[in-house]
Design a protein around this nucleic acid. Structure first.
Length: 396
DNA sequence: TCTGGGGTCCTAGGACCC
DNA sequence: TCTGGGGTCCTAGGACCC
């Protein structure tokens, strides 16, 4: 059966949401109408563009460039800090509202989702463009921000369509429109085809998505291995992946931090790692998960990234147990270089409710897990400062 | 005061087993 | 004593997404 998929994308999400927040709190100007960006804290060395207004875009400002560079393109640029708590709330409200139309929603990110409306014509009729306009306008009225809606017969086409012209627009990319609407676009515009693949394709003389669609698969395979098949299928608008609610089961939980200056002392790195372990371990336990693989990630002053990981026999979840492994990893992997960014990642997650005790392991781990859970509950109820372990005090 | 943070997926190579 | 080959698990690194 032919499918009908919508892709909904909040226009300049962080900037729009901040605009809504500011207007609601008495700010006189709509920052969507001026040259503005949402940017990280430059003093904390996080000074990059997270979102931009349409006028800022006209100045050539792009996402992820430094604020320094953005200002050089537009001297009267206004910079606002991100408000993640508010963003998450807006995102949740939007998705809750969209479940009115279909239960088959895949939340792709904080500001993007797919809706499967296949078989809903008895409910909404056959005019999907009209339906999309209705949803789009309701969102604008109800929440105060605009979205783009792309309509297609699969997720790929819907996603490509929502990207066409912004903001506040509805576009279709039906099978019969692929040649006219998608083939003239540069290969970089194809979803999941990034910079490094685009560069290789250009060297092969493949510039547009149409060129890619017409390229011999054997040639593509020589350069792109298994990716070649995806590229060719996608360039022809083919995609059979289903709209699936994001699995509750995370594949990994991670945290990383850019440090205020480059750290060269082990004790300093250990202090940051302790805080990071507390964070990821807390999230892990909130999700009632255990982790078997623990990793440490670095970025040094030369922007070189590296990482180190280990896999345990038994999955763990307490902060001290994880920290112990992280210290081991630090010992084994840190190259004594100046560290700009350091992080902790937990993966190989399971919902295992019992721990298989290895022969020589004490049976106290269950008790320790319970103590941690009691502490977590206190934190949830009374806040972070309500409780602190003795060892964490000295590390602050 | 130049270059964030949280994810998923893939690949190559080594260890180890039979 | 001249050195096969398939399978699995693990790690590091990289591409790509928002």
């Amino acid at each position: 059966m032919e499918r009908i998929i919508f892709h909904i994308d909040v226009n300049n999400a962080f900037l729009s949401w901040t605009a809504v927040y500011l207007l609601r709190n008495g700010y006189k100007q709509d920052i969507r109408q001026i040259p503005s960006v949402i940017g990280g804290d430059e003093k904390a060395r996080r000074g990059i563009v997270l979102a931009k207004s349409p006028i800022a875009k006209k100045y050539g400002i792009v996402t992820a460039e430094t604020l320094y560079s953005a200002r050089s393109k537009c001297p009267n640029l206004q910079v606002f800090p991100p408000n993640y708590t508010f963003y998450k709330e807006q995102s949740r409200k939007l998705y809750t509202y969209l479940t009115n139309y279909t239960p088959v929603i895949e939340q792709y990110s904080i500001d993007e989702c797919f809706l499967d409306l296949t078989g809903t014509s008895l409910l909404y009729g056959n005019d999907y463009v009209a339906l999309a306009h209705k949803i789009k306008d309701e969102i604008k009225e109800k929440f105060g921000f605009t979205v783009n809606i792309g309509i297609g017969e699969n997720k790929l086409c819907a996603k490509m369509a929502s990207d066409f012209e912004k903001p506040d627009k509805v576009h279709t990319l039906y099978t019969y429109e692929i040649e006219s609407k998608m083939w003239p676009l540069p290969v970089d515009d194809l979803f999941m085809l990034g910079k490094s693949s685009a560069k290789k394709l250009k060297e092969l003389g493949i510039r547009t998505i149409g060129d890619l669609a017409k390229t011999n698969i054997t040639t593509l395979k020589r350069y792109f291995k298994s990716q070649a098949i995806y590229f060719q299928q996608a360039s022809r608008g083919l995609d059979t992946t289903p709209v699936l609610p994001r699995s509750e089961l995370n594949k990994c939980i991670s945290v990383s931090r850019t440090l205020p200056y480059d750290y060269t002392k082990k004790e300093d790195l250990e202090k940051v790692l302790w805080q990071e372990v507390e964070e990821v371990a807390f999230t892990l336990r909130q999700k009632k998960l255990y982790a078997k693989t623990i990793a440490i990630t670095y970025k040094n002053n030369l922007f070189k990234s590296y990482s180190h990981q280990l896999t345990l026999v038994n999955a763990i979840c307490t902060t001290p147990e994880i920290y112990q492994q992280v210290l081991l990893l630090l010992e084994r992997s840190w190259k004594n270089d100046a560290i700009r960014n350091i992080g902790v990642r937990l993966s190989d997650l399971s919902q295992q409710t019992y721990q298989q005790l290895s022969l020589f392991e004490s049976s106290t781990s269950k008790k320790e897990d319970d103590i941690e859970r009691v502490m977590d509950n206190l934190i949830t109820k009374f806040g972070k400062n309500s409780i602190m372990r003795a060892s964490s005090k000295e590390k602050k």
